[in-house]
Write a protein that binds this DNA or RNA. Sequence first.
DNA 1: TCGACACATAAGCATACACTTATTTGTCGA
DNA 2: TCGACAAATAAGTGTATGCTTATGTGTCGA
Lengths: 104, 104
Amino acid sequence: MTENDIFRALADPTRRAVFEKLAAGRMNATALREGMAISQPAISQHLSVLRTARLVKEMREGRFVFYEVDPEGLALVAGWMAKYRAYWPARVDALKDLLKDMDQ
Amino acid sequence: MTENDIFRALADPTRRAVFEKLAAGRMNATALREGMAISQPAISQHLSVLRTARLVKEMREGRFVFYEVDPEGLALVAGWMAKYRAYWPARVDALKDLLKDMDQ
DNA sequence: TCGACACATAAGCATACACTTATTTGTCGA
DNA sequence: TCGACAAATAAGTGTATGCTTATGTGTCGA
C-alpha cells in the first residue's frame, strides 16, 4: 500500500467507477458487476488492485465477499494533497464545501 | 483536462517527482532534469502529460520554458476526494493539519 | 549570422496493463 | 452429496505507456 499503488489504482476509470459504487455502500463482487460491461474475472482483478492500494477492504461472508471503501487509501491521497496545500486555490468551491463539512 | 487525465498523470512516479520538484518553485525543463537519470525528451514528454492534466502550467521566457504548479489540477483531485468525505477517517492527522490550514 | 543551447517532436521498442476465456477453489441449499 | 453459484487464479492477447536515439524548431550571444 504505497503512494504508487494508490495512484496507479485510481488511474483506471473502471476502478474509479467500482470505487464510486462502493462509496454508496458495501456490495459483493457480483452486485458490483451489474450494469458494467465487463467479465467477472476483470472485476475480481480490479478489486484486487484496489485492495492492494487499501482503497477498499473485503469482508468474507460465506461464499460472498463484500467489499467496502477503506478510508486508509483515501487518507494517503489526502496526505499527498496536503503537501501541496500552498497551491490550493481559495476560489475552488469544492474545497470550501470540503472545509465546511470537515469543520463540524 | 479530465479526471482521467489527472489520475493517469499522477500514476507515474517520475511525474509525481517532477510535480514535487515544481512545488518547491518554478523551474525550467533543464533544471528539472538535474539529478534525474532520464533523457531530455522523457522530461519533455512527462511535462506534456502534466500540462494536459493541468497539474502544471508553462511560462515561456525567451528560449526557456518555466514550469510551475497549476492549482487547477489539484482542485480537481480535491473535488474527487470531496465526493468521499463520508469515509475520511477522523484519526488521520494529515487531514486535521489540512483542515487547520484551510480554516484560516 | 552562425554556433550553441533549450525544448519539442518523430519513430521505434520493450514492458506493463486491462481485458478475455478457461479453470480452480470454496460454500451453499436441495 | 451433488449441482449451482461466488469469486479467485491461470494463461494468453492487443494496446497503451514510458523510454530511448535522432531530428526539428526557435532563441540567444559572440
